[in-house]
Write a protein that binds this DNA or RNA. Sequence first.
DNA 1: TGTTCATGATACATATATGTCTCATTTGAG
DNA 2: CTCAAATGAGACATATATGTATCATGAACA
Lengths: 184, 184
Amino acid sequence: MNKIRPGSRDAIIEAAFQTFNARPGASLGDVAAHAGVGRATLHRHFSSRSVLMVALARTAVDELNAAIEMAVAGATSHTEGLRRALAATIPLAERQWFLAHEPVLEDPAVAAAYQADRKELHNEIDAAKAEGTFDDAVPTRWIAESYENLIYAAWALVRDGELTATQAADLAWRTLTEGLAGAK
Amino acid sequence: MNKIRPGSRDAIIEAAFQTFNARPGASLGDVAAHAGVGRATLHRHFSSRSVLMVALARTAVDELNAAIEMAVAGATSHTEGLRRALAATIPLAERQWFLAHEPVLEDPAVAAAYQADRKELHNEIDAAKAEGTFDDAVPTRWIAESYENLIYAAWALVRDGELTATQAADLAWRTLTEGLAGAK
DNA sequence: TGTTCATGATACATATATGTCTCATTTGAG
DNA sequence: CTCAAATGAGACATATATGTATCATGAACA
């Protein structure tokens, strides 16, 4: 065996996330250049553009699942689990955004994993409802959609350096559960 | 003068919004076909792809401004104005999404109009803070980002037929101001 | 009815992205 | 040091999108 640059594949995936998030229509040449790799090498790792896209999607799903699993590990309630999962997702929001808005979801395996995650979120929200965290009268789907979109909001402020990840997570959770009303 | 199809331009813009929202990398041929128009005719109205993109952006900005202006007309407070603007924006969210995520914002005029709208939103939020609607301690930028992202959430549920526009607007406003906490 | 003009279809040249291939170079293993 | 393997550079054919130009058609208008 002789692998000269075992990190090439990871470097390409990393560069692809950054490049495609900045410009979804970017060429593979742009990605390769950003990864500091020849275009031919990119094709050696990912035979076609769509193969690369699916790899990105799988990476995003796997990273999210791993991050959430680790974050939720010691949670004492479904509510606390949701809160920790929200905080853990914020740094990964850019890749989740990529996953949600790229037509990669036509890939069966990716679509299945994505739907499974959404289903799991709905289950946790229902469990949190039972714990009294959310109003039973509010549709679970709305809570889930708010949850996800507030994560994007949080990520935007963290990205722009206006808030720390912790501050953003706290604000997002407060918004979701208590809202932003004034004291008066 | 002799204009056989005065609606061509509007039809193209409409088709472009739909086509690009479904697939941002779609070709002008796709757009023309979706508009029921020849590709040559599309180029007669919009000389290049970027010209079309800027036209879409301007359309989105103008539509949003018009809708908000009309909705806010009789508002008795900044808070009520924000609430009405939120409801009025939900049906236009798809186009706002297009505007926010397409690199069209490099166009100076579009970027200026976009920034002006954001600035105006911040001003209204500050005014609503003064009315006691929002906690002064919460960054205005966070409220604005939550406001916009909850609009996307509302639009998603309306699009999927799970809520009416009114229901979605009410839920988004409640989430923003009071949160989704249960009664217990 | 005849004229005008937007239209659709089509051809065309150009540019760019893609995927394959070759080859000299470099890197790491033995 | 020697050798095998991966790499970068580049050539190459192909596909697709783009923008322009041409032309016959048909609808509106006088």
